[in-house]
Design a protein around this nucleic acid. Structure first.
Length: 659
RNA sequence: GCCCGGGUAGCUCAGCCGGUAGAGCAGCUCACUCGUAAUGAGCAGGUCAGGGGUUCGAAUCCCCUCUCGGGCUCCA
C-alpha cells in the first residue's frame, strides 16, 4: 500500500512541524528527542511508528519513559521473551503476554509439560539479549482468519483467541480489538517468530535496552482453575539500565520493609502453625501498638457522633440466612458448628448484628442518623495460597461502622464520613490518597433510581472533599455503590485502606424502617464503612510505610535510656522518673553490656528516642539525644530535652470539631 | 485449592557422590564499667517438620502428609 506524501504541517504535541512524512518513524526523526519516541497517539489510539500516517494532522508522541511508552516497551519485551522461549524449547506453546504495572509476563505450555527452572531463566534472558542485538523489526500485518488459523496451527491458545474474535463478530468493541471484522493483526519479528497481537510495538527489538526476568509461577489459562495451568515468566524492561537498576533497588527495599520480617524482628506478632494459617497472635509490643491504634480510633469516633456497639463472634444460621450471607457469601465463611440442635457460624461481617441493634426498638426520624461503631473481629475463609502476613488473614478486626440515616441525610453523612476518614488517616502520618467511586455492576439488586440516588450522593461527597478520584464503572458490589480510599506509601506502592459502601439491600432484607416527620413508615439508608480496613492490614501498611519506625505515640517504649556506666545509673533513674511523670514511656538499659551493643539493640528495636547519659551529663545537667533517623546530639539540656520529647510523643489531638 | 521453591539449635544458615550434625547470633554463667550499630571466655542447646519406603546404614534418595514462601488480578 502506498501513501501520498504530505506537505501540509503536522501538529506534534501541539507544535507545528512542516515536512513530508509517510510514517511516524520519519516524523519523529524530524523532531528533537524523537529517538526516545516508541509510538504515536492519534485518533484516540496508539499506533506503531512504522504505520502509514495517511491523513493524520495531529499526533502526540509516546516516549519510552512515559507510562504508556513503558507499556509498549514491555509488551515488546514480552514478545521477545516468547521468541526466546520458543528458541530454547522448540514446540513450546505461547498463550498471552501483556505488560503489567511493573513489567510484563508471558504464559507458556512447554513440551511434555516441563517447568522452567532458575538456570533456564538465565538462558532465556541470554537468548533475549541476542534477539535484541539482532534489531529484529516488529513488522505488523493484517491477515484473514483462515490465514491466521493456518499460521498458528500449532498454537492452540492462539487458535482459541482467533475463534473468540471471530465469534464475537459484530460488536464495536470486538471490532476494535481485532482490528477488523474479518481480519486479525499479527506482528512478525523474524522468519522464526510471529505473534497474534493488537500492538503497538516498538519499531525493532533494539529499543528494549534493559530487561530482566524475575520469577516463574503457575497461572491458569484465562485465570480460571477450570482450565489447564500454564507456566508464567515474569520480567520487567526499561528504556535504560539506570531505570532498571532503580527498579530492582526498589524491589530490594520493599523486601527490607516486609512487615512479616519486621514483625518477627520487632517481636510484635507471629503466625503459629498450631493456631492455623492466617491467624496471627500478637506479642506484648505488637498488642500495645494495636491497643493505641484502637483507643485512638475509639476516642475519635465517640467525639464524632458515633456510639459503640459490641457483638459476638458467632451467630445462628438463621441470622446469616436473613442477611443473605449464606446465599451470596457462603464460600467466604468458616464452616458451621452444631450445638444443642442449632447451627452456628463464625461471622464474616458485622452488619447483621448492627442491624439487630437498630431494629431492637422502633426508630424515629429524630433518632437518625444512628452511627454504630465496633472493632469487630470477623472470620473469613481465604484460600491457603492467598494468605499474606497481616495483609491477608482469616481472622481480622474491622474498625467497622454502620450508619443508618434518612435519604435526605445520605449525602451529608457521606461527606462527613470522607472528611473523617482523611483526618484519621492523616493522624497516622499518611498523606497521599486517591479515591475510587465504584458504580453499579451488571448484576445488581435494587432499583435504578436508588442506585442513581446513592451514586450521586457519593459523587457529591467526593467533590466536596476535593480528593482526586476515579470512577470505576460497574465495579461496585452487587448491593452497593462504594468509595474506596487508596493510599500510596513511602516507596510508591498503592494499598486499599478504607471502604464506604451504601447498602441498598440489607435494609430491605431486614425490612428496616423509621417513623418519618409525616408519620409514615420509611426505609433508612445504610452505610457500611471501615477506615483502617482491618486493624491487622493497616498495621502491616504502617510497618511497611515506616520501615518499622512507627510514630512514637503508638509504641510501648518511646525512649530508651542508656547510662554509660554504673556510676551514671542514679542520674539515669532520675531522668527516667521525670520522663515517666510527664507521661513518656521509657525504659532503662543498664551498663551490663558495652554501650555500643546497647545502642545497636535499641536501633534494631527501633526505639524512637535514644538517650545516653554519662559523667559529663551529670556534671552539666544534660543528656545525649538521638532522635528518630537523625544523628546524635550531645549536651542537650535536660529541661529542653524533657520538653521536646514530651511533646514529640503525644498522641495526635482531636482531629475534627466534635459534633 | 493449583504450579514452583523451601522446612537442619530460639534466629540466620552450612552440611558434596548416603557413613548417624556444624557455625554465627540469641540464651545462661563469670569477668569487663564502657560516650553512640556487636567486650571476652566458658557452658548449654537438635526426634534434621511428621510418617512411610529403599539401603548394612538416610538430614542426604523415593512416596505421602503438614507447614512456610513466590505466583495463580492485568486477556492478542
Amino acid at each position: 500500500m502506498t501513501w501520498r506524501r504530505r506537505r501540509i504541517p503536522v501538529l506534534i504535541d501541539g507544535v507545528r512541524v512542516q515536512g513530508e512524512f509517510a510514517t511516524g518513524l520519519e516524523l519523529v526523526q524530524a523532531i528533537e528527542g524523537g529517538g526516545e519516541v516508541v509510538a504515536l497517539e492519534y485518533g484516540g489510539e496508539l499506533h506503531d511508528l512504522s504505520a502509514p500516517l495517511g491523513g493524520v494532522e495531529k499526533v502526540r508522541t509516546v516516549t519510552a519513559i512515559s507510562e504508556a511508552g513503558r507499556s509498549v516497551l514491555r509488551h515488546s519485551a514480552a514478545h521477545i521473551m516468547a521468541q526466546a522461549v520458543v528458541d530454547c524449547f522448540p514446540g513450546a506453546r505461547y498463550a498471552i503476554g501483556p505488560s503489567t504495572d511493573d513489567g510484563f509476563f508471558y504464559d507458556f505450555q512447554l513440551p511434555g509439560d516441563e517447568r522452567f527452572d532458575q538456570e533456564e531463566l538465565a538462558a532465556i534472558e541470554d537468548r533475549m539479549r541476542a534477539i535484541i542485538a539482532e534489531r529484529q523489526p516488529f513488522a505488523r500485518s493484517e491477515i484473514g482468519f483462515a490465514e491466521a488459523e493456518e499460521l498458528f496451527a500449532q498454537q492452540p491458545y492462539k487458535l482459541e483467541i482467533i475463534s473468540r474474535v471471530r465469534a464475537a463478530g459484530g460488536s464495536e468493541e470486538d471490532l476494535r480489538e481485532a482490528g477488523g471484522s474479518d481480519r486479525v493483526s499479527i506482528y512478525r519479528n523474524s522468519e522464526r517468530f510471529a505473534d497474534l497481537c493488537r500492538g503497538p510495538h516498538v519499531p525493532d527489538t533494539s529499543y528494549v535496552r534493559a530487561v530482566k526476568l524475575l520469577r516463574t509461577s503457575g497461572a491458569y489459562w484465562r485465570g480460571s482453575e477450570a482450565n489447564s495451568q500454564l507456566q508464567r515468566i515474569y520480567g520487567t524492561a526499561f528504556w535504560s539500565d539506570e531505570e532498571l537498576e532503580a527498579h530492582l533497588l526498589r524491589l530490594r527495599e520493599a523486601e527490607q520493609r516486609d512487615h512479616r520480617k519486621l514483625g518477627a524482628e520487632l517481636d510484635w506478632f507471629h503466625f503459629p502453625p498450631e493456631v492455623g494459617g492466617g491467624l496471627p497472635v500478637f506479642h506484648p509490643k505488637g498488642a500495645y501498638v494495636r491497643y493505641r491504634m484502637e483507643e485512638f480510633s475509639r476516642k475519635q469516633h465517640l467525639a464524632y457522633g458515633y456510639q459503640l456497639a459490641w457483638t459476638p463472634h458467632i451467630a445462628k444460621a438463621a441470622l446469616f440466612e436473613r442477611s443473605g450471607h449464606l446465599g451470596w457469601y457462603r464460600e467466604g465463611m468458616f464452616p458451621p458448628m452444631e450445638m444443642e440442635g442449632s447451627t452456628y457460624y463464625p461471622k464474616p461481617m458485622n452488619c447483621p448484628f448492627h442491624i439487630l441493634i437498630y431494629e431492637s426498638q422502633p426508630r424515629s426520624y429524630r433518632d437518625l442518623p444512628i452511627r454504630l461503631f465496633e472493632f469487630g473481629t470477623v472470620y473469613r475463609y481465604e484460600r491457603s495460597g492467598t494468605l499474606h502476613g497481616l495483609a491477608r488473614v482469616r481472622g481480622l478486626t474491622q474498625d467497622d461502622s454502620h450508619i443508618f440515616c434518612t435519604p435526605e441525610q445520605l449525602a451529608e453523612e457521606l461527606a462527613r464520613l470522607l472528611e473523617f476518614v482523611l483526618a484519621l488517616l492523616r493522624a497516622f502520618g499518611l498523606e497521599d490518597f486517591t479515591a475510587e467511586l465504584a458504580t453499579k455492576p451488571e448484576k445488581a439488586v435494587g432499583s435504578d433510581s436508588d442506585w442513581e440516588f446513592a451514586t450521586a450522593a457519593a459523587r457529591s461527597a467526593l467533590e466536596k472533599t476535593g480528593l482526586d478520584y476515579a470512577v470505576a464503572e460497574g465495579e461496585g458490589a452487587f448491593y452497593a455503590p462504594k468509595i474506596d480510599i487508596h493510599l500510596t506509601d513511602a516507596i510508591g506502592r498503592r494499598w486499599q485502606v478504607s471502604t464506604l459502601q451504601i447498602d441498598l439491600q440489607l435494609p430491605q432484607r431486614f425490612d428496616l424502617e423509621f417513623q418519618s416527620a409525616e408519620n409514615a413508615k420509611q426505609r433508612p439508608f445504610m452505610i457500611h464503612r471501615a477506615l483502617f480496613g482491618s486493624v491487622e492490614r493497616f498495621l502491616a501498611i504502617l510497618i511497611e510505610h515506616y520501615e518499622g519506625h512507627l510514630p512514637a505515640w503508638l509504641l510501648d517504649e518511646q525512649v530508651r535510656l542508656l547510662p554509660v556506666n554504673d556510676t551514671s545509673a542514679n542520674y539515669a533513674a532520675e531522668v527516667s522518673s521525670k520522663l515517666a511523670a510527664a507521661g513518656v514511656r521509657v525504659a532503662v538499659s543498664g551498663a551490663g553490656e558495652p554501650l555500643g551493643a546497647r545502642v545497636r539493640r535499641a536501633k534494631i528495636d527501633r526505639i524512637p528516642y535514644l538517650v545516653v547519659v554519662g559523667p559529663q551529663d551529670i556534671a552539666n545537667g544534660t543528656v545525649g539525644l538521638t532522635r528518630p533517623r537523625s544523628p546524635e546530639e550531645r549536651g542537650v539540656p535536660l529541661s529542653a530535652f524533657l520538653e521536646e520529647v514530651t511533646k514529640a510523643v503525644q498522641e495526635p489531638q482531636l482531629l475534627l470539631e466534635a459534633r
